[in-house]
Design a protein around this nucleic acid. Sequence first.
RNA 1: GCCGAAGUGGCUCAGUGGUAGAGCAAUUCACUCGUAAUGAAUAGGUCGUGAGUUCGAUCCUCACCUUCGGCUCCA
Length: 635
Amino acid sequence: MRAAECNVPQAGWNRGVVTSPLNSGVKFFYPQKERDLFMKEKSEYSFENEVYKKTYWHSCSHVLAQAVKRLFPEAKLGIGPAIEAGFYYDFDVEKPFTGEDLDALEVEMGKICKEKLPIERFELPRDEALQLMEEKGEPYKMELINDLPEGEHISFYQQGEFVDLCAGPHLDSTGRIKHNGIKLLSSSGAYWHGDSKNKMLQRIYGIAFPKKSELDEWLAKREEALKNDHNKLGRELEYFTTVDYIGQGLPILLPKGARVIQILSRWVEDEEQRRGYHLTKTPYMAKRELYKISGHWDHYRDGMFIIGDPDDETKECYALRPMTCPFQYQVFLNRKRSYKDLPMRLNETSTLFRNEESGEMHGLIRVRQFTISEAHLIIRPDQLEEEFKACLELANFMLETLGLKEDCYYQFSKWDPENKGKKYQGTAEQWDKAESAMQMILDSLDLDYKVGIDEAAFYGPKLDIQFRNVFGKEDTLITIQIDMLLAEQFGMQYTDSNGEMQTPYIIHRTSIGCYERTLALLIEKYGGALPTWMAPEQVRVLPITDRVHDYAEDIAGVLKEKGYRVTVDDRSEKVGKKIREAQLEKIPFMLIVGDKEKENGHVSVRHRSKGDIGVMPQEEFQEKLRAIVESKSTE
RNA sequence: GCCGAAGUGGCUCAGUGGUAGAGCAAUUCACUCGUAAUGAAUAGGUCGUGAGUUCGAUCCUCACCUUCGGCUCCA
């Protein structure tokens, strides 16, 4: 169907056309807003131009939809946007797509590109738009149209026989898309409108580039990144494992993983002590009554492991803690407090239990039992800004030391008033107050952040520090939260300087986040070669012959005495093999010793990434190691 | 929880409706070796678990468990 055949109002036809500044003939049917953005960007049609890239991928998603419609005419269209890396399109189909289906679709997409079909925009009034989608048999599109506000221009894009409801923008022809620069990556289920109550559609993910070589490069890079998958590397390098009959989300931290977490948590606890925190140790479980006060019973019960019958009020019922907050508050409540006691900074290396749903677990990143560097700061309202900033400073200090700062970004996680009562406790006024307080602090820091609506904790807004794993999936590493609700619920009060009772504010925060998750991120960041200061094994001594085993032991003994983690490989193997294995295990330093070294009291030093760095006296190596470890360099 | 894929010795993977192989790792022996794999021998698996179909199941069917990629959820 041509646009003209369905009463296209010609007036809207060329709305917002931009002609290429390079006069290459490419036309963008951009709405004014995006046109302005485009013109500010590099005036080239390259992927360095974010708008062009997204437009290209968006048009790819339409080509994908067109291919699906050709090969699977019964498929109903969902939505198909460009995303961070590539594009996807959701379809309602009888059977999920198979790998062969994706191959066939890729071929068909290539054909559509070669057909060089003009991509044209037209607009329709609501009733005609609905009629068109009804004729095309697209119930999901009709739902989208019905959700559009009154008076909105309802625009469509057409290429050949394919018409799609779409706000645009798009390229002007399928011929602009490189026919062999497209790769369909995967397909999986995805709920319509992202709501698990809705029907599950089938989503196809894809990526595309204007050059085949760029596609190949991207795919190779991705493959390379996947090699650092902590879930693979972490198991291979024996940081952790899982056991069928223990259960999902309950990893075993093997000696190497446990060692790293011990090193990190000692560092964190010491640093927090320096910053005025008091360490607590609170129980792993409590009676249901505690969680009723905190609100967990009403807002978080599905996320808890409950011991006993939660509905039988005549018997005791316990729950493993999903958070430490209500426990640490008891420290404050232990006696009468005055304004002089505040801020009260309570930290705990706390193990938590959350009954995540079965499909949500992922290596060390998403588990059911984990340990976080948690703290609650009980403060006077006038201390909020200073304490919040100090929390952020601490978090950033940790991230910088770990070398992860560049991989993280901020998210201001707000509530959604729509879910008041169900998901969130407190009043709109209380939420406004907490969110605007956080807003003010963030503004004063001139922080670059994205906003997450409906991402808050049930008791308050959060500043989350996010990262992406090797698959590009986003997770929270660190969080800082403002809570103006729970202190009141627990009857926490302090006497101010006028002798009047006041309710404190509370900051919930993590400093390094969840140790398991942080370890996962470190493994992915460093490809398993963790910085020397936190490496589970820092030095391995490799004697060349049995004659120098005693010397090797001496060297190791001195280093152990100084607190380093060192082993001796005294097997009867060739040194080449010992080196190979130490390399594969990513041991930072190898000390190769033979008769010559023994004679002179020297060591031959090999670094895992620098290779052979020469022979030196033992003391010189010790000094080198000391400098690296004490500075917590990322080497 | 939902959609899809997978599960064979410690690891990576072959394989077949007639109850299993390879490489690496392990163990033993020999070699005493100079910056990424010395050689030989030995041992190791009720083929994720449980049912069913069949004369016979690791293979076919179903359920469950676990793992992986998504969705939803979340530190």
